[in-house]
Each structure stands twice: as structure tokens, then as C-alpha cells.
């Protein structure tokens, strides 16, 4: 087996960095959206659900392209950010955003399944005991959603580690800056002389995935036991 090069170590570090940041960034939003979809009645709920789940079915390349349209120099959000001196495209931040969007539906899904399992009478009980809606949210729904949060974020973490299609468009494939493990593997695999290097990195990513999915299964079991 070929030993890892410094850029490979960079790729591993960047991958972990992107996955952690994307997951942490998504947690509050994921929780809010799952709460909305599960507990709040409002018009256009189906639209929101479709919109949230879209990255699950869209090719990641399309997500990446939309992000480029949105955040690029001439995109309407990119324009504003540019004036504020913030540049996202071709930076690690763009990789984080791409991973967050692609993994978001997985987080929301896990959280929703968990929240739907919460007995609605617990929420009624909390309200009649004097808790306002946000108090109930924090003192009942949040603690009971912990299994969903952990399961969802582990799944999302794993998905972020593997994110390729959207990342390569908005973040580019810059070694040491935005090149994550899948991007590095792609580069190796398309050159006749460095196939062995690709194999080493593949094994690294297999190892990380196994650890993360193993944790995920443990969380899912815990959740099943509770209900």
C-alpha cells in the first residue's frame, strides 16, 4: 500500500473539517424545519417538504450549479456578499455549504421520524402545566429529539464526507484548500500512474464511513428501544 502524501493528509483533514462544519451548521436549521413540518400547521407545508427533500433526488451536480448561480460573482446573493467583502466560491466555506445542502434532507428526515414518535399528549401536558410554546420546544421536544439529532447528524456527517458533485463545482478541486477525500480520489483515479494512491485514500474513507455508520446504527437501535 502506498503511504499517504501531505496533500492526502490535507484532504482527510479538509474532509473532516467540512463534514463537521456542515453538520453543526445544519443542526439548528434542521431542528427548526423538522419542528415546523411535524408540529406546526401552515399553508404550503407540502411545498416546503418538497423543497427540503429536493437535494435528495436532484443530481448533486445540479445542486452545485444552482449554488454557483446563487453564490457566484453575478448571482444575486453572491453580489451582495461580494460588496460586503465575502467570497464563498472556491473556498472551503463553499464546500461546507454544498455539503450542508446535500446532507440536509437526511438530517431533517431522521429528526422528523424521531419527533413524530413523540406523544402529542406530552406536548399538551407541558402546555397545560404552564409552558409557552418555546418553553415546550426546549424542555420537552428538544430533549426527546436527541436520538434523532444524533442519528441524523451522523448520517449527515457520513454524507458530507462523500459529497463530490456539488462540491467540485462550487469549491473547485484545489489541493490543500478545497480538495476533500472524494475529490482527491477522483483526481488520482483519472491518471494512469497513481491508481495505488487512490486505493489508499479509498481505504481511509471506507474506514471513516464504517465508524460513522456504526455509530449511526447504535443510535438508531437506541431510538427503537425507546419507542
Amino acid at each position: 500500500m502506498t503511504p499517504l502524501s501531505p496533500t492526502d493528509y490535507d484532504a482527510i483533514r479538509l474532509s473532516l473539517q467540512v463534514a463537521v462544519a456542515a453538520t453543526l451548521l445544519s443542526l439548528p436549521f434542521g431542528f427548526a424545519v423538522a419542528y415546523l413540518v411535524t408540529f406546526v400547521k401552515f399553508r404550503g407545508k407540502v411545498l416546503l417538504e418538497v423543497f427540503i427533500n429536493m437535494p435528495l433526488t436532484l443530481p448533486p451536480v445540479v445542486v452545485g450549479y444552482f449554488l454557483l448561480l446563487l453564490l457566484g460573482k453575478h448571482g444575486w446573493l453572491g453580489n451582495l456578499l461580494n460588496e460586503a467583502g465575502i467570497r464563498l466560491i472556491f473556498t472551503l466555506k463553499a464546500a461546507v455549504i454544498a455539503s450542508a445542502i446535500v446532507g440536509f434532507p437526511l438530517l431533517v428526515r431522521s429528526l422528523r421520524i424521531c419527533m413524530e414518535g413523540i406523544d402529542p399528549q406530552l406536548i399538551s401536558a407541558s402546555r397545560t402545566l404552564g409552558a409557552r410554546w418555546y418553553d415546550t420546544l426546549l424542555s420537552v421536544i428538544l430533549p426527546l429529539s436527541v436520538p434523532g439529532l444524533t442519528a441524523g447528524s451522523s448520517l449527515m456527517f457520513a454524507r458530507s464526507l462523500g459529497e463530490f458533485g456539488a462540491t467540485i463545482i462550487v469549491a473547485g478541486n484545489i489541493p490543500g484548500v478545497t480538495q476533500t477525500i472524494p475529490l482527491a480520489i477522483y483526481e488520482y483515479a483519472s491518471s494512469p500512474t497513481s491508481e495505488n494512491m487512490a486505493l489508499t485514500l479509498c481505504l481511509v474513507s471506507v474506514a471513516i464511513s464504517i465508524v460513522v455508520l456504526f455509530l449511526h446504527e447504535m443510535m438508531a437501535k437506541k431510538m427503537a428501544q425507546r419507542s
Binding site: 399528549q121 401536558a125 402546555r127 397545560t128 402545566l129 404552564g130 420537552v140
Partner: peptide, 20 residues
């Protein structure tokens, strides 16, 4: 009035205790 403003407490058919 919202439930928390009514000061009417409930005992449910199922105990509905907070499991956490």
C-alpha cells in the same frame, strides 16, 4: 387564552409523564 395562561391542569388517560 393560550393553554399556559388558563391555569387548568390535566391528568390524562395515559400518565403522559416526561420520559426524560
Amino acid at each position: 387564552l393560550r393553554p399556559e395562561q388558563r391555569r387548568i391542569a390535566m391528568v390524562f388517560q395515559q400518565h403522559c409523564l416526561f420520559p426524560h
